[in-house]
């Protein structure tokens, strides 16, 4: 009887230890050009010294899911290990002619559009694999875009904890309150991934979010 209780006690401790060390899959979702890769780069650079992918003013720069494993985020004495998953922006339309405005050759623009459509499909397929998700929105844009609502609706349906980021707060047009008003049931953190502004609140919120799945 005593031996059994002792065995269970140690089992629980060991289980707890391994459970804490689990690598959480942290996904970055959102519409194109919201700053998902910029934010993922900022985190990876802060804690691994390496970036995850390239960024560009031209939409759909990320056209395939890219990830970095074993990113140990340390904040205020706490540690947590994540697999950072940066996904291509989700859109309902992709027109190669939009890329021509960026002085891209027609052939390259068509190839980029084709890869971007595949990227959107890949992003959607990865939704089921996430433990926690950061939805990155451009705070200078209208938050009522249906893509935002569709992403959040799907994460809710899958019971995946979500944090909304109002990115680009360094820009005068940015409106965090607009995003908070559009999605009152979610936590919203305003930051500038480009300049690393307000990352402390972001890390604090990520730890809070991760606790919900641990």
């Amino acid at each position: 009887m005593v031996a059994k209780k002792l065995r269970n006690f140690f089992k629980r401790i060991l289980f707890g230890l391994f459970k804490q060390k689990k690598e959480l899959k942290l996904g970055f979702y959102g519409p194109p050009n919201a700053g998902k890769t910029s934010l993922a780069n900022r985190i990876c650079k802060d804690f691994t010294g390496e970036e995850i992918g390239s960024v560009s003013k031209i939409p759909h720069e990320t056209r395939a899911v890219q990830f970095k494993e074993k990113v140990e985020i340390q904040y205020k004495g706490r540690k947590m290990t994540f697999k950072i998953i940066d996904t291509p922006g989700i859109a309902t339309k992709i027109d190669y002619e939009n890329f021509l405005k960026f002085k891209m050759k027609k052939k390259d623009a068509q190839a980029r559009a084709k890869e971007a459509t595949q990227g959107v499909i890949e992003s959607i397929k990865w939704l089921d694999d996430m433990d926690v998700v950061v939805v990155v929105l451009d705070a200078t844009q209208n938050p009522y875009n249906q893509v935002n609502i569709t992403i959040l609706g799907n994460l809710l349906a899958r019971k995946i904890p979500v944090l909304i980021i109002a990115n680009k707060i360094d820009l005068r047009k940015s409106n965090i309150k607009g995003i908070e008003a559009a999605f009152p049931e979610y936590d919203v953190v305003g930051l500038s991934a480009r300049y690393g502004k307000n990352m402390e609140e972001f890390y604090e919120s990520i730890f809070k979010l991760a606790k919900r799945v641990q």
Partner: peptide, 28 residues
């Protein structure tokens, strides 16, 4: 919500395969 993402997936798969199709605009 699951139907909305399926609609987006199907739409993306059709771009480049259906002539002059560039996707959809959607709002609720």
């Amino acid at each position: 919500p699951e139907e909305e993402v399926r609609l987006i997936e199907d739409t993306m798969a059709m771009i480049g395969h259906v002539k002059n199709f560039r996707g959809i605009e959607l709002a609720v």
